[in-house]
Design a binder for these strands. Structure first.
Length: 131
DNA sequence: ACCGTGACGGCGA
DNA sequence: TTCGCCGCCACGG
């Protein structure tokens, strides 16, 4: 089953990205690179592009994805300005901790459980086939 | 079918 | 540490 947040304009790749980020709990974030790894995609940049076009924000929590150095990254197609402030506010409201350099604290970083790719209840089995 | 773009990341200077 | 470059790859035009 494709998630309820599908839309005809959304590509299969985008759908996989959006399904995956819904596994991230509030108060935690993952990096574009880790998300790419989870999706077995070799381009974090490509993942970034999918998030950049997320038509379901913030219900599909693309704000919970930050850069590899734990700096804020982008939001709503922007990498600076009001949209970014909104991303920061959303994250702080969810309990994500930032240090004085504007980086997310290590304690707020979430790690994808690889098994979720094959799980049944919360997993993404329709999207990840073995073999 | 091709090409430029980009919410990335790693590496060397 | 901060840059500049380059490899990465999905997408829209």
């Amino acid at each position: 089953m494709l998630s309820q947040t599908q839309a005809s304009s959304v590509t299969a790749f985008q759908q996989r990205v959006y399904d995956a980020i819904q596994l991230i709990p509030a108060g935690k974030v993952v990096t574009y690179g880790e998300l790419a790894r989870f999706l077995e995609c070799r381009s974090a940049q490509a993942v970034g592009q999918a998030l950049r076009r997320n038509p379901f924000a913030p219900e599909v929590p693309c704000h919970r994805v930050v850069k590899g150095d734990h700096s804020i990254g982008g939001y709503a197609g922007k990498i600076e300005g009001e949209k970014i402030q909104k991303k920061v506010r959303l994250l702080m409201k969810e309990g994500v901790i930032f240090n004085d350099l504007g980086r997310v604290e290590e304690s707020s970083i979430w790690a994808f459980d690889v098994d979720l790719r094959y799980g049944s209840s919360k997993g993404l089995d329709p999207l990840f086939k073995r073999g």
